[in-house]
Structure formats: structure tokens, C-alpha cells
């Protein structure tokens, strides 16, 4: 169920990118997409009534069904990368605004494009 929801989020993000001209809205929809994928990654490692994969005193035998730790590690990096791209995007958006005075790519495209 979670997987379907996360893929839905991805679709929304994609639709957001398709429909908007505004740069800020684009960056927001990229974040939605990133969010969708991250949730999907985490949902991959889910084991029904699994246990957090940390060896503590009571949970130390390899029999207990641990939740798969790898996707969680991956999702951390992916979140960081998503953050990086958003920060970069916003910085460029600000410079764009300073230079062209608008966020709307369609208007900017009209000016001398080269």
C-alpha cells in the first residue's frame, strides 16, 4: 500500500513539473518526487512485524526477523542529495529573478534566447 502511495507521490511530482512554468514550483515538485522515491526505498526494506535492526541486549540472535537495514542507509544519502539539489536550485532561482525579474520560464524563453 505504502509503495502505491509513494509511486503516486512520484506521479504527482512529475505532473507538477509538466504543468508549471514557475521555477520555484518546479523545485517544489522535484522535492515531491524525491520524497516519493525515498518513501518507496524505505518501504522496500519492510518486514511484517520486523524488529529494528539494532543488536541490543534482548534482541541479539540472528533468528529474530530484522527489518532490512540497507534501504534505510541508502535513503539517508538520497535525502542528502535531494537537499543539495534543492539548495542549488533555489540559489539559481534567486539569481534568475535578480537577472530577469520573473520566475516564469516562458517569459524568459521569449527574450533573446541565445
Amino acid at each position: 500500500m505504502i509503495r502505491v502511495a509513494s509511486l503516486l507521490l512520484l506521479m504527482i511530482g512529475l505532473y507538477g513539473l509538466l504543468s508549471t512554468r514557475n521555477v520555484i514550483k518546479m523545485i517544489i515538485s522535484i522535492n515531491i518526487m524525491e520524497l516519493g522515491v525515498n518513501i518507496f526505498i524505505v518501504s522496500i526494506g519492510f518486514v511484517t512485524n520486523g524488529v529494528a535492526p539494532i543488536l541490543t541486549s534482548q534482541v541479539n540472535s540472528s533468528l529474530s526477523n530484522f527489518v532490512d537495514p540497507l534501504p534505510q542507509a541508502l535513503v539517508l544519502t538520497s535525502i542528502v542529495i535531494g537537499l543539495g539539489i534543492t539548495a542549488l536550485g533555489l540559489a539559481f532561482a534567486r539569481k534568475l529573478y535578480k537577472k530577469y525579474g520573473t520566475y516564469d520560464l516562458a517569459k524568459i524563453g521569449g527574450m533573446k534566447d541565445e
Binding site: 518546479m26 522535484i30 518526487m33 539559481f92 534568475l96 530577469y100
Partner: peptide, 15 residues
């Protein structure tokens, strides 16, 4: 300094 190209590149690259 052509930021709209850079943003296009950024959006497509991230997708």
C-alpha cells in the same frame, strides 16, 4: 549567466 538553461538542466538532470 544563462540561468534558465541551468535550471532546465537541473530539472531534467534531477528527474
Amino acid at each position: 549567466k544563462k540561468y534558465h538553461h541551468t535550471i532546465t538542466y537541473l530539472v531534467i538532470g534531477s528527474v
